[in-house]
Design a protein around this nucleic acid. Structure first.
Length: 257
DNA sequence: ATGTCTCACCCTGTGAGA
């Protein structure tokens, strides 16, 4: 079973690229982030025609997440993180697909730091960690995938010294990521590629993709039953080089039986 | 400080967010 995460940066503007990648890669489950579309503008028919059932949580202009499942409809288990009824941003969606529980997230960017957006990022991360604590011990495989907007270590940044004050690399944010891992989650991509320079995002600025000036900010975290099934974890980096591509590349894992 | 891309709307350029 192949499970992927892809920050599309606009699901409608990205639709041709998304459909091309779905056809090429044929993932079984896909978590999408940054739909940048309200619910009624989600391209449901095009995605259904590509062979995928979908659930989505949209929002006008910003954010928005979806979960796609090839040949079936994801069974929604949660829409939004618990812990703040005032939070109107669409950043978390969770579903069961063929015996696997999949959480899809778009963690806040948090810039500029310091400021209210950074405070919101930390608070959101705390809520995620509290919710993750309820999932880590499940007997079924659980995968929490998405754009975490954090580079966990120096190895995940092309030039760490330039990013020290940025909300994606701030010590408090990295600490939150490791607090989550300490619950028992496995970072699938890093586990399969312990010493490799491996990125999932390249800025549109300054020819970043051609220079491989990238960041690793899209992660798939696995509980123990899922980690035992892990057979591969890869980045479809070539997709970032396509015409009209997102600034992120799709990232995927293969779970065996 | 800059760069580029997305979306919405004061809607064919501009501003905000990333």
């Amino acid at each position: 079973m192949r499970i992927a995460t892809y920050n599309v940066n606009g699901v409608n503007g990205r639709l041709p690229v998304l459909l091309r990648w779905l056809e090429e890669s044929a993932p079984d489950v896909v978590c999408l982030q940054e739909l940048k579309a309200p619910d009624e503008k989600f391209p449901e028919q095009a995605i259904r025609d590509a062979g995928y059932g979908a659930i989505w949580h949209g929002q006008k202009s910003w954010n928005g997440v979806a979960i796609l499942a090839r040949g079936c409809d994801p069974v929604e288990t949660r829409r939004g993180l618990p812990g703040d009824p005032e939070d109107g941003q669409s950043r978390y969606l969770e579903a069961a697909v063929n015996g696997v529980l999949v959480g899809g997230l778009y963690l806040p960017n948090g810039n500029p730091r310091p400021g209210p957006k950074f405070d919101y990022k930390l608070a959101w991360f705390d809520r995620l960690i509290a919710h993750a604590a309820t999932l880590i011990g499940m007997d079924v495989p659980v995968v929490i995938a998405g754009d975490y907007n954090v580079m966990p270590t120096d190895r995940d940044v092309y030039k760490p010294e330039r990013w020290l004050d940025d909300a994606l690399f701030a010590p408090e944010v990295r600490a939150a990521y490791f607090r989550m891992l300490d619950q028992g989650w496995t970072d699938a991509l890093r586990t399969r590629h312990p010493d490799e320079t491996i990125y999932t995002f390249w800025d549109y600025f300054r020819n970043a993709y051609a220079r491989n000036a990238g960041l690793r900010i899209d992660h798939l975290l696995l509980n123990a039953p899922a980690a035992r099934m892990l057979e591969a974890a890869e980045v479809d980096a070539h997709v970032r080089g396509w015409e009209k591509s997102s600034d992120h590349a799709p990232v995927w894992i293969e779970l065996g039986t």
